[in-house]
Design a protein around this nucleic acid. Structure first.
Lengths: 181, 181
DNA sequence: CCAGAACGGAACAGTGGTGTTCCATTGCGG
DNA sequence: CCGCAATGGAACACCACTGTTCCGTTCTGG
């Protein structure tokens, strides 16, 4: 069972990866497009994800899993709030397609309810003076997401390098949340 | 000709308004949905816009027209670059659905090629010290759009008042472009 | 009041995506 | 080498949207 599981898990992951890439660029892409991008027959895709909803559910799970791992790496609990926020942006930035996929699919799970750790981080920033107290945590979350999306599109549509895009994102995010004189 | 034109123009506008509202929330909405929102039979819609492409073309024209008017009202040529930028954000903010429609449809016409007046405004800001010289005009444009989208979604998804959303947008945009100490 | 414009509804064929079934082929472990 | 798992391709019915035609109804100006 574990032997075929190796093969099964591999193709399943290939389908998910392809789906992330394809659906990030065009949320209305057909399953045929996804299958083709995954180098897999449409039949095989249906074998793993019987309905379209099953695929996007798995996609959502995969995306939030990556998101959580990125959140862990950012160590939101350490250092000043503003510094932790910048670390989080760095980690999120590398999620690439996953980012815009979640952004376009309007994932309220993460963006709406505002993660607990994120909330605590922003409030800590309010207290230690590294984040403007007038900015609610939810707003900061919105801010981060839209900035990351801007950076992503700056990269993909204006041929900017990853380094430049990331630099601009971090600069503008930190500038936006910094308390005003 | 001008007499029926009164009725025709009115219906046409009603369809366009409804299309903006519906397609802003769901770019994949059917023409039936648009017609229903416009209180118009699907037949009538096809009478004004034979194909879907005709509708979105007219939509694009309508949107850019409103965008241009907003740009004129902002008087991009007056005052410091940073101040003019804030004025532009205020004007754009009130475009509401048009904004997110253009944002989601990836209108490169305006967002990509970077309007000439906008470009001049940013460069003036670079010179007069109100906009960080490290931020390219195209990036500032991306920044503005993503911030406005954030403000729009903050309004519609978190029940924030127009006033609060606008205030946060302006605060964060001006903070993001301000030269860093 | 009357003629023409504007409109709405029904019906139709065409299209593309979807989900399913069946069968042939490939690959890998026992 | 054999058998099972995994896959790919073809064919199929189904469905929603689209674009079109036709006809009856309503509105409006002359």
């Amino acid at each position: 069972m574990s032997v075929p599981s190796g093969s099964r898990a591999r193709t399943r992951q290939a389908i998910l990866d392809a789906a992330i890439e394809v659906l990030a660029r065009n949320p209305a892409a057909s399953l045929g497009d996804v299958a083709e991008a995954a180098d897999v027959g449409r039949t095989t895709l249906h074998r793993y994800f019987p309905e379209r909803g099953d695929l996007i559910a798995a996609l959502r799970a995969e995306a939030t899993a990556r998101l959580d791992r990125a959140g862990d790496r950012a160590r939101l609990g350490e250092g000043p709030g503003g510094t932790a926020l910048v670390r989080l942006c760095q980690e999120y930035f590398d999620l690439g397609d996953v980012l815009s996929l979640l952004f376009r699919e309007q994932v309220e799970d993460e963006a709406g309810s505002c993660d607990e750790d994120f909330d605590a981080m922003v409030r800590r920033g309010h207290a230690d003076g590294s984040i403007d107290p007038e900015l609610p945590p939810v707003w900061v979350q919105n801010l981060v997401w839209s900035q990351l999306y801007a950076g992503w599109s700056y990269q993909s549509e204006h041929g900017a390098s990853r380094h430049d895009a990331l630099r601009l994102v971090l600069r503008c995010v930190s500038g936006a949340v910094r308390p005003q004189p």
